[in-house]
Design a protein around this nucleic acid. Structure first.
Lengths: 231, 231
DNA sequence: AAATATACGATAGTAATACTATCATTGTCA
DNA sequence: TGACAATGATAGTATTACTATCGTATATTT
């Protein structure tokens, strides 16, 4: 499996493609590192410039502001998740089996992904878990939506929705369900370390497998005739 | 029904209780107005001071920063929703009927609430819909969680969770389900105006009733033997 | 009625943020 | 050799998110 994804990201997100230069790649990989360490709100181009021994001005030639950086990162993340799901379900016919694989790949980052790229997917997942809602909930969301900044996320949700539809074509709300499922995986990861009383998931080594089982449980009940392996 | 709620809000949220003075009440009601108009990120104490003909310094005597203002507002909102649910389900015995009422009051703001208070609940609901995730997703969430800033939200979720439990005691994830349901009501309201392809809900006059039906549909499928009126 | 506390207003100031602008330097390719 | 693209160096600005101090009006206590 080739896990080094080079996702096609809407060119309006950046001013200059960070994939095209060493500096660009450094901007991306150190952004991930810094956002993870100090949080998105304290992260800025001045600190980043210092860290990578460059200048604010140079970074501004790639992205007009830090918000675009995180939009870029989240696009990459969802692109990656969908890619992972597609690769692993390619040969699988049975819809329920494919749903199981999709759920697994929504929750886990494949081990193969962890060594290849200058973009650390495990850290990126952590960032998206913490920051996703800050990305989506801005006053200009509908503008950015029109420009297509969120295409990657939408593609993933549509893809899950059509899986649900294959399994139970009578289900009335496949899109709502797929956003709920994606957000459930994010939320419960977040809650179990930050607001534990809001979830049944317990922090720990098997946290992801708990979440996987839980999402299977929900899908099993929501879709008719959909008993999955953990149910 | 007495809808003028005077919620008990954790005193650590503010420096000085805004309910105790005219200026305090003005700060609250105009904050709501301004955040709705210009968004939380562009909202600040300087603009607010100008609007209410006071000074930044005076506002800082009530709240240490604007983030606390929105925590205060969201606490009030969830307190209000739970209060509404409690009042309207008080006389009702049948759990399924109570769930239906709870769902309705999660989505709608009772008409009675709209005239009484200096806090406009309809606008407040709009703000919470737009900003809720910004409130919860901060780097210090777990600190604030310990202080108890989010007690109101948690109380509401727990209350829904025990309702689910009454209806189907075999259901494994009542807390996760209740946060999913609350967020579903927020998310779909948000999506249908900002990212319409992510939801089956269509913008319009009956938007809230669509969401009510949808949540009933999900609850009906998730909980066993739980056919609600719209299913 | 005098003393005191509290609330609020007025004003000033600061460090950090989020940019924008300009010009110099370096490497590359034709 | 010359042109151009990419980057670095430096400077500057408006706004934000505060903090600090002082003076005055009003209410409360004694």
């Amino acid at each position: 499996m080739e896990v080094y994804v080079n996702p096609r990201i809407n060119a309006d997100v950046f001013l200059k493609n960070p994939m095209d230069s060493e500096l660009g790649k450094k901007i991306i990989s150190y952004s991930v590192k810094m956002i993870d360490e100090i949080g998105f709100s304290k992260f800025n181009f001045k600190k980043l410039a210092e860290e990578i021994q460059s200048t604010e001005a140079s970074i501004y030639r790639y992205f007009p502001n830090k918000h675009r950086v995180i939009i870029y990162l989240s696009a990459w993340y969802w692109e990656f998740v969908l890619y992972q799901i597609n690769v692993k379900t390619k040969e699988v016919k049975e819809p329920k089996k494919r749903l199981e694989i999709a759920i697994k790949n929504l929750v886990y980052i494949g081990e193969e992904a962890q060594t290849h790229s200058y973009l650390d997917m495990v850290i990126l997942q952590r960032i998206i878990t913490e920051q996703f809602y800050k990305i989506v909930r801005t006053k200009n969301v509908s503008v950015q939506n029109e420009i297509g900044f969120f295409e990657s996320y939408k593609r993933l949700c549509s893809s899950l929705a059509s899986l649900f539809n294959e399994i139970d074509s009578s289900f009335k709300y496949p899109m709502t369900m797929s956003t709920a499922v994606v957000e459930m995986s994010i939320n419960n990861t977040y809650c179990c370390s930050n607001m534990p009383s809001l979830t049944e998931i317990k922090c720990g080594a098997d946290q992801k497998s708990q979440i996987e089982m839980m999402i299977q449980y929900f899908c099993g009940r929501l879709l008719e005739k959909c008993q999955l392996s953990f149910n």
